[in-house]
Deep mutational scan, measured.
Amino acid sequence: CHSECLGNCSQPDDPTKCVACRNFYLDGRCVETCPPPYYHFQDWRCVNFSFCQDLHHKCKNSRRQGCHQYVIHNNKCIPECPSGYTMNSSNLLCTPCLGPCPKVCHLLEGEKTIDSVTSAQELRGCTVINGSLIINIRGGNNLAAELEANLGLIEEISGYLKIRRSYALVSLSFFRKLRLIRGETLEIGNYSFYALDNQNLRQLWDWSKHNLTITQGKLFFHYNPKLCLSEIHKMEEVSGTKGRQERNDIALKTNGDQASCENELLKFSYIRTSFDKILLRWEPYWPPDFRDLLGFMLFYKEAPYQNVTEFDGQDACGSNSWTVVDIDPPLRSNDPKSQNHPGWLMRGLKPWTQYAIFVKTLVTFSDERRTYGAKSDIIYVQTDATNPSVPLDPISVSNSSSQIILKWKPPSDPNGNITHYLVFWERQAEDSELFELDYCLKGLKLPSRTWSPPFESEDSQKHNQSEYEDSAGECCSCPKTDSQILKELEESSFRKTFEDYLHNVVFVPRKT
């Protein structure tokens, strides 16, 4: 048989008469490798580009789960590009990614509803959504962080984005990388972005840091009482949809009607710091009717980097990364020049730590249904340095008659930039024990000054392991946590139920 035959053949030295091919099969003959313009397919066939392209389009058009959109890589027609490569849609070739590779997620039936953290986790790592997304989240724990972890990498949506009755959302900033909504599939009414009845939605994105392009379709905003109209108009300008909307697409009466839409800028007039305090004062603000001013709200939190936005980490279910302080308005003076500047002394802060701070007014709604208010920009203030805590785990070892090696770990709280350490030492008198000992005694162990690591005695271990207080009263049991108490109650309830079950099964009433 021919060298490319495997198993047997019907005619000697003829690659077209093989029972099976050793390498690849091409047009009725066995070959060692697939010549151009053919590609290896499933490690035994040679196919042309049209064959591989037909497989790709067949799966793409069917949208069946589990099928493969075949691509070409290293002269092979394979189910998908290997790690580190992405497909070129024009020629199906796998090309190296520039940075992290995109991950295209194809949605069944063309859309997916995100109504819980669990459903959001199914899209973790996706960068391109081939379909439409509907966000409908009523509640949950730590929602802002969970949504950002699972949806934060999405850069492109081919269909539309719909935010509907998501009472738990305060902001859409968890879509931190969303840059493009194509609108290839539109919501009824030709809408590519749809926001309806979101009672706590206050911000779409921080438009000073976020760009969003909507290729096709219109915007729809109705019944978002805490979303200011200025935020919607800003989205029109940034996304390129200005002029597409009709009169009733953006409701003037049901958007922002319960919001404090600040239209003035508060400026800080005085800032002073110490290692654990920050004193702030800002310019006074009074609405047209000074009785509408209820006070100020001061927001602050630790910020290692200057990239904080107002609604980071917030949701309507209680999660809030900001510390909020309510401040009463100052006494009002008739003389504008003698107006008191409101302020606040922030206490209990960490030394040498940068804080993000902003302040906003708290006002009631005027009778004319106009909203007044003022808010400052987010500023960054760093507390002063102070003395560091003591170095940890000092170790001293003498390696000769004239040297001592000293080692330690950095302090747990540096409280500033540590530039150097101060080492103090003092000579001590020799131990009298060394002169009084009889060095001729056998088995004498000389006193040693070398360091030995501390260890816990058996008594201390027994005390720590004991669940009861000892007789001397030195140790006591740790208080039980809520989960331990709940577990004990469940076990007790189970024992009672099981005992009742045994009584009912074992003891049967005697027939009379």
Rank of each mutant, 00 (worst) to 15 (best):
S319V: 10
L108F: 13
L252P: 13
L227N: 00
V117N: 13
R347D: 07
T113W: 06
N334A: 07
N255G: 03
D206W: 07
H222K: 11
T386R: 07
I214W: 08
I129M: 05
T241C: 02
V359A: 00
Q203R: 13
I188N: 09
I188G: 13
E155P: 00
Y270I: 15
A144V: 13
Q203D: 06
T309Q: 13
L227D: 00
V397I: 10
H233D: 15
S158A: 15
K242M: 08
S192D: 00
E262S: 11
T371E: 02
E283N: 14
Y305M: 08
E156S: 09
S333P: 11
E237H: 15
H210A: 08
G131Y: 02
A168K: 01
T213C: 09
K277R: 03
E231L: 06
Q306T: 11
I379C: 13
K409L: 10
M297D: 13
A385M: 13
I379P: 00
L107G: 09
L108I: 11
V324A: 14
N136A: 09
Y167P: 14
L349P: 01
L252H: 11
L294R: 05
C228L: 03
G131C: 02
E237I: 13
G131L: 00
V238N: 12
R244T: 11
L172H: 01
T213P: 05
D315M: 15
R165S: 12
W322T: 02
E302V: 08
D257L: 03
F268D: 00
I188T: 13
S171C: 12
S389V: 01
H233M: 05
L178K: 00
A259C: 14
N263E: 10
N224W: 00
Y191R: 02
I379L: 10
I154H: 00
E302Y: 10
D312L: 11
E264G: 06
A145S: 08
N198P: 00
N136L: 14
E283W: 03
A120R: 02
R291Y: 02
S173F: 11
P287N: 04
K209S: 12
S338Q: 06
P304L: 12
L406T: 02
E302T: 08
N142V: 06
V363I: 08
Y160S: 06
W344N: 12
R370W: 07
L392W: 15
N211I: 05
V117L: 09
S171E: 08
H106C: 03
T323R: 15
E148K: 11
I271D: 03
V170E: 04
Q382S: 14
T323E: 15
P410V: 15
T323Q: 09
L107T: 10
S319C: 07
T386F: 01
T273A: 14
V324H: 11
V325L: 15
E231C: 10
